Each structure stands twice: as structure tokens, then as C-alpha cells.
Amino acid sequence: MVSDKDFIQNEYNLQVENGSFQWSAPSNIALVKYWGKKEKQIPANPSISFTLNNCKTITKLSFAKKQNDGTFSFDLLFEGQPKEEFKPKIIKFFERIETYCPYLKDFHFTIDTENTFPHSSGIASSASGMAALAMNVMSLEKTLNPTISEEYFNQKASFLARLGSGSACRSIKGEIVVFGEHKDIAGSSDLFGVEFTSAVHPNFKNYQDTILLVDKGEKQVSSSVGHDLIFGHPFAEQRFAQAHRNLSTIKTVLENGDLEEFIKITESEALILHAMMMTSMPYFILMKPNTLEIINRIWKFRNETQIPVCFTLDAGANVHVLYPEMVKEDVLQFIKTELVGYCQNGQYICDEIGNGAVKYN
């Protein structure tokens, strides 16, 4: 079994003076939700997610050798402009990964990052952002130690990304990714995400996710705060056991193509996530009235047409509308006719299953 000590390397060539890398990493949408984390971003329960394709963070990391004065040195640009309020999160990330990346204080970095979707609105921007940064850090490590394998590169990138944002480990590689130890998933780990290796039924190939932007503003409660409230929650242990059961079931569903069962698990998991928020102490609600209106209209449309479309939610008000590629035309027509009016400024994003992080240079 892989342990965190396997990611500690001491063989580095620090003669490298400067350079740059650029990676994109996508967001992901969990089907079985991860809610609650222990120390060092260890998940309280396993999760499984679709990797997205179009909703992504693009990050360029430039580096220049400096004297190691015991400090992290970096400039941070978001969409071309300095973004001081993001810096504490990067510092915390560097502090968490320093044991595994001891070369960080030997360089000054310029981190230039942008999203293809609204930041902090419930589309897992921290997941894509930390995944993209982790891939860049690993490109630097590969430059300093060219002997590391591709498998080690990706596994450690997922491990590092998790230390920035738990769900970020699911954005490195693979169309479908499992994060957290689970008895039915070979090689699954609490330390990093693993690709779902079972044969996936054709029903789920190129699965579509249209994200309805109900509220593009920042959430009033961050996911980190929400995760912490699970401990001491009256329903926590039942929830963790339920997540394990649901992951076993959805594994079978992804193999056999049962869309009806997929819909049941996916929608109930979304509602359970928000139910846990509403029954925390302190309690909070991230859904908006339009979120509920969209859900009801999806249910009505599905009942009337028997088209296998469903919803899921992340920790926010936006609605992910999930459906097979074969019904894309019908569902998009439904969205344009009935759901766009409930989106902020009529905005929505058409996405689909993707393959993970991509290097640009």
C-alpha cells in the first residue's frame, strides 16, 4: 500500500536556473459526494466523480532560482491581474506540500492563472485550480529529477492537489475517478484519486453535463467550513456508511448501464449533501429558490418524456444537468425553453466528460 512517505524525494538537481510550464486542469462533479474531511485533507468517506472537459483552470508557472532564505516567494496573477486575496491559500498549500517538495524555497514563482468559468460559485474552482498548480509543481520536479515515472508523476500530482483541496485529486487523470478507500475499488486510497478501471457501459460514454448558473456570486459558507461541520453531526456515521453503499451500487451501474438506478443515486446524493448542510450546527442553505424550481422542472420533464435526464449539485446553488449524449438535442431544447429563465443572466455552460489535466508546452 502506498503511504505519504513514498512521495518524499531527496534526489534533485538544483542547477536548473529558470523556466516555465503551463497546464490546464478541469473541474469535476461528484456523483457520490465527499463531505467531511479529517486532518491533512483525508476524506471521511469515499467519492466518485465525472471529470469535466470545458470547465477548467489554466495555470502558467514561471520559476527563477533564488537564494534559499527560508521563505516562499511568488507573485500571483488571476486573469492577468494581481490577486492578493488568493495568496494565503497558496502559502498554506506550499506549507502543506513542502515536506514532499523541499525545493520550493529555492525558486521565485510567478503563478498566472485563469478560469473558463466563474470563480467560487460552486463549480469546484479550487479543485481545478489546485490540480493545475500541482501539475506545474510536478513538471518542475520532473525537471529537477528526470528519472521519475509517469505513474509516479500523476499519482504524486493527485496527492499534492489533495493537500490544496480534497476534490482536486479527482481532476488529474481519468474520465471517472474515485477518491477514498473503498472495498470494491482496487488500489483506492485516501491519499490520492484513482482512475475507475472497470469497463464503462456505452450509456456513459461522452456523458453530458450542462451547468445552469443560478448564482455566480461567492458562497456565503466555504466548502472548507462546511466540511468541518460534519464532525459532531448527528447523522454523520450513517452518512459515511451510506456513501460506501452508494459507491458500490454506482460502480455496478456504470458497468451495466442502468440509467434509472444512476438517476436515483445521483439525485439522492445531491439532496443528501445539502441535507447535511441544513442539519449542521450552525446550519446553512446554499440552494436558491431557482435551484428548487429547476429541480422540479427536471422531474416533471423526465416523468412526461421518459428521457433519462437528472440533476446533481455541488456545494452551491448551481445545477448540473446530467444526461447521455444520445438525448443531447432534446435536453438542450428543454433547457433553452424552460430552464434558462432561472439562470443568472440566462447563463449556462455546456460540458461533458473529459480526460483530466493537459500540458500546454
Rank of each mutant, 00 (worst) to 15 (best):
K87I: 07
V331I: 00
E325R: 07
A134Y: 06
F109P: 01
N303C: 08
L160N: 05
L322A: 02
E98R: 06
E17W: 00
I97M: 03
A317S: 13
S47K: 09
E79H: 11
N345Q: 15
S125E: 13
I172C: 03
L292S: 11
T252R: 11
G346V: 02
E255M: 12
E195K: 14
G187M: 02
N13R: 12
S171M: 05
L229C: 07
L212A: 04
N203D: 14
S171D: 06
F50I: 13
T312N: 07
F262M: 10
Q22I: 14
E267F: 01
I42H: 05
V194Q: 00
T305D: 05
H182F: 02
H108Q: 15
A315L: 03
S3A: 07
P202S: 10
L52I: 00
L31V: 08
D330I: 11
A30T: 02
F311P: 04
I123V: 14
L77G: 05
A199D: 12
E338M: 01
N206E: 15
A161W: 09
E218Q: 14
K251L: 08
T59R: 04
K156M: 02
I148G: 03
L292Y: 01
L313A: 09
A199I: 04
W23Y: 15
G36I: 09
P324V: 00
K142A: 12
F153V: 04
V319W: 01
A317I: 05
V177D: 04
T116C: 01
F334H: 06
Q220L: 11
P324M: 02
I123L: 15
R297V: 07
E237W: 00
I250A: 02
I211F: 08
S158A: 10
V253M: 10
T249P: 00
C350Y: 04
D75S: 14
S126T: 02
I353K: 06
Y342G: 11
